[in-house]
């Protein structure tokens, strides 16, 4: 499956079916991440149930603490 993640085309294995699995795939599952799918923001509770499909545009923003 080909996705556009933060503007780049990325191929992810077909075993990755949901937003939660995608976060795991990118090792972001332990971080606080804001997810936007096809220009629509997703509440955290929906990460596990939201399916992803080919050509989806995903934005992932994670919070960092440095300054």
């Amino acid at each position: 499956m080909i996705l556009t993640v933060n503007g780049d085309q990325v191929e992810v294995p077909n075993t990755v079916k949901t937003i939660a699995e995608l976060l795991q795939h990118f090792e972001l599952n332990n971080k606080v991440v804001i997810v936007e799918k096809n220009a629509e923001i997703l509440e955290k509770e929906k990460h596990a149930e939201t399916l992803i499909s080919d050509k989806d545009k995903i934005e992932l923003v994670h919070f960092v603490g440095g300054g």
Partner: peptide, 20 residues
């Protein structure tokens, strides 16, 4: 908008988080 970028990876994203 919530703005984030990575200057090394050449990413930038700007998203509206009002819904949150």
């Amino acid at each position: 908008k919530l703005i984030s970028f990575d200057l090394w990876e050449n990413h930038q994203s700007s998203i509206n988080v009002d819904k949150i």
